[in-house]
């Protein structure tokens, strides 16, 4: 499935081209930073009315990954909802879709800075969780750990892509949500988190590992974008 297989604390993991992490031995699929309900939240706060399809787009991608892997457990690594009200504001069809995905699977929500409190979506809620040799939390803080939060991205041959970062000690996942931006992996924050020799694994049609760039080779061109 075009993934890249690597080891973290002796656990064999697969970085999928979609940005999800697959742990075959545990039949566990881990995704981070879904930011569901982002468009609704912006509208609610008087911002622009973005195409209200990002939750569908994200759920469609998750559905495909679940079907491809046959995952029994799903771990959402925080910032699953864009804010506390976003979970309640999902339209009925999206809510039902999420329920269908959750049915028959063990579903763990790790709390993030955007969604620091449990929602009424079911599943279990944890600040962090340790499974076998690995600890899963939203923001990187220790060893043998899988985290998200930073939305790392990287360029290769002139193309920017969200990416995984791993240095054999910790792993940082790319953002999985449709309406998410990214932080360059040569940003000092990320460089400080990853040891020398770290890999960036680019997402796209195929997961491509490269040595993690640790310095800005140049000023990065910014694609047309906007901040909120």
């Amino acid at each position: 499935m075009n993934g890249h297989t690597f080891f973290l604390a002796d656990a064999r993991l697969v970085a999928m081209p979609s940005g999800a992490l697959w742990w075959p031995e545990e039949r566990l699929l881990c995704v981070s930073d879904l930011h569901l309900g982002k468009a609704e939240r912006m509208a609610r706060r008087g911002g622009t009315l973005l195409p209200p399809y990002e939750t569908q787009a994200t759920l469609a991608r998750l559905t495909a990954d679940l079907e491809a892997t046959g995952a029994a457990r799903v771990l959402c690594l925080g910032d699953s909802f864009d804010d506390a009200e976003a979970a309640g504001a999902l339209v009925e069809a999206e809510r039902l879709w999420l329920m269908r995905l959750m049915a028959g699977r063990e579903w763990i929500w790790i709390l993030g800075n955007h969604d620091p409190a449990p929602t009424d979506c079911g599943g279990s809620y944890r600040g962090e969780i340790t499974l076998g040799p690995l600890t899963f939390r939203h923001i990187a803080a220790g060893e043998a750990e899988v985290s998200g939060h930073y939305h790392p991205k990287c360029t290769l041959a002139g193309r920017a892509r969200p990416c995984f970062l791993t240095d054999g000690r910790r792993l940082i996942l790319p953002a999985y949500g449709a309406y998410t931006g990214g932080l360059w992996c040569h940003d000092p924050t990320l460089v400080a988190l990853m040891r020398p020799g770290a890999l960036a694994i680019l997402t796209g049609t195929k997961a491509i590992p490269v040595p993690m760039p640790r310095r800005a080779p140049q000023i990065r061109p910014r694609s047309s974008s906007f901040a909120r």
Binding site: P51, H151, Y179, G181, S225
Partner: peptide, 22 residues
């Protein structure tokens, strides 16, 4: 403009989303 770009995303994503869903 900020250096932290987590909150910033490309208008291309909006175009792709709109094209697929609407």
């Amino acid at each position: 403009r900020r250096t932290g770009k987590q909150a910033t995303f490309s208008s291309d994503i909006l175009y792709d989303t709109l094209l697929r869903h609407d």
